[in-house]
């Protein structure tokens, strides 16, 4: 793919991914066929800051995990009172990273 397009994508969506993934994303996008560009461009990613806000308010009920697509862990959190309240607090710090990982998974699914 045209490197200008790739740079545009990275500039617009860089914040949705872990910084150590960005290089890898760039490489894969450059190698990718042009026909995939439309699909890649229309992907919607979850904003890590939004999931942090959800985690602060609804983390106790596992809503943050449900929102990013970790349904199973969300149920676990809901059933255990947010992991006795400990998991809730841990997730305030983990959820942004988890969201970025989920975005990466989504992008990788679009590659193939």
């Amino acid at each position: 793919m045209d490197s200008q397009k790739v740079d545009m994508f990275i500039m617009a969506n860089g914040k949705f991914f872990e910084s150590h993934h960005v290089g890898q994303i760039r490489d894969s996008l450059v190698k990718l066929d042009d026909s995939k560009w439309v699909v890649i461009q229309t992907l919607q990613f979850k904003d890590p800051s939004t999931s942090l806000i959800i985690s602060l308010f609804g983390g106790h009920l596992g809503i943050d995990r449900f929102v990013i697509g970790d349904t199973g862990l969300g149920i676990a959190k809901l059933l255990t009172c947010g992991g006795l309240g400990i998991w809730t607090i841990v997730d305030w710090f983990m959820i942004m990273g988890a969201t970025r990982e989920k975005n990466m998974e989504k992008l990788q699914q679009a590659f193939y």
């Binding site: 106790h60 009920l61 009172c81 947010g82 006795l84 309240g85 809730t88």
Partner: peptide, 18 residues
């Protein structure tokens, strides 16, 4: 009780009492 919600708001959460 470890329940954050009950400790803060005094309202039980869905899994309180389990």
């Amino acid at each position: 009780s470890f329940c954050l919600m009950k400790n803060i708001t005094n309202v039980p959460c869905p899994s309180c009492g389990s």
